[in-house]
């Protein structure tokens, strides 16, 4: 009459992938159970929260998001440094907003120079997120790979359209790739297979399943991540056993309710706390869906998400 929990039978696990270089490395993934289901497997590496910085002064961030970084938003390297030194960032994500051809269209050389500055300012792994225009990302990320040879940057998003150029550069100069696809298990697998065909080892690949904001498509991302995790772990699909990354801060903070002021929406209460909790609740959802690297913005939401990770892991 005793009770035994019905256990999942796993046929595979998520790869442990080391990001960063030298003394400044972190290992992500490596779990042998569904996210935090430690009663039937191990989660040797806690999910990591990477802090995002932009290479331009953000113009549309709400006051709450801008406030902690006011003194550094116009100096990318100083911004990165502040995240690490003051807020204890485990990793930095540099969002290359300047390179968007529909906007400032900064050159690959300029972007590469910024990356070098940021690298010099921090001692944690550096993730480079392009503007999501495939051709431009290919040009920019190739250049960055070259000038940062051996740094083991994590670069992306890499899609079917630009996987050849960026894949080759990443292999040639020793970087890790973010393989990206729009909320679809088959497409996610397809990009990984293409990268493998190119000669890229899947041990150097993090998967970006595409992230929807809280209240703005989160449910689609959440389910595709559960499906990817199931494919990897219960079906043992070795093309999908990669840790996942979610560009969360960027999605949450651009949605309307994260931006509304007290005058816009008195019924939603304090704009700062509201948006912080929107980001943190979004983080919890993505963690439970299997995220290994969460890209987040506000130091307070990050603190909350980290305590959650600690409490549920230990």
């Amino acid at each position: 009459m005793g009770f035994e929990i019905t256990k999942e039978s796993y046929a595979g696990s998520i790869k442990g992938i080391t990001i960063g270089k030298g003394d400044n490395t972190l290992t992500v993934g490596g779990q042998t159970s569904y996210p935090f289901y430690q009663f039937e497997g191990d989660m040797p590496n806690k999910p990591v929260i990477a802090m995002e910085i932009w290479d331009i002064t953000p113009e549309d961030w709400p006051e709450a998001a801008l406030a902690p970084f006011k003194d550094v938003v116009s100096d990318t390297a100083a911004w990165a440094k502040k995240c690490v030194e003051e807020y204890g960032a485990q990793a930095i994500v540099l969002q290359l907003k300047s390179t968007d051809p529909n906007d400032k269209d900064a050159s690959a050389d300029d972007a590469a120079a910024t990356v070098k500055n940021v690298l010099a300012a921090i001692n944690v792994p550096l993730i480079i997120w392009g503007c999501a225009v495939p051709a431009k990302d290919e040009e920019v990320l190739k250049k960055i790979s070259e000038v940062c040879e051996g740094e083991n940057l994590i670069i992306g998003p890499v899609e079917e359209k630009n996987h050849k150029g960026i894949g080759a550069a990443a292999m040639g100069y020793g970087h890790t790739i973010i393989s990206s696809s729009p909320i679809d298990v088959n497409l996610a697998k397809q990009v990984n297979i293409l990268l493998e065909n190119l000669g890229m080892s899947l041990d150097k690949v993090i998967v970006d399943p595409t992230t929807g904001g809280l209240g703005y498509g989160l449910e689609y991302s959440y389910s595709v991540m559960e499906r990817l995790t199931q494919a990897a772990m219960t079906q043992g699909d070795d093309k999908l056993q990669n840790p996942m990354i979610n560009n969360l801060g960027n999605e949450v903070w651009k949605c309307k309710e994260a931006k509304q002021t007290v005058a816009d929406a008195p019924e939603l209460g304090d704009p700062e706390r509201r948006a912080i909790l929107m980001e943190a609740v979004g983080a919890v959802s993505y963690l439970l869906a299997g995220s290994s690297i969460l890209i987040m913005r506000h130091p307070e939401s990050i603190k909350l998400a980290k305590s959650f990770i600690d409490l549920i892991s230990d």
Binding site: L214, G215, E267, L268, G269, R274, A280
Partner: peptide, 20 residues
């Protein structure tokens, strides 16, 4: 209940319980 803590939970609930 405060609106700042409730609203994010209501959004999450709406998302998770939407018929996929």
């Amino acid at each position: 209940f405060t609106s700042e803590s409730l609203f994010p939970l209501l959004l999450e609930r709406l998302n998770i319980y939407t018929d996929p």
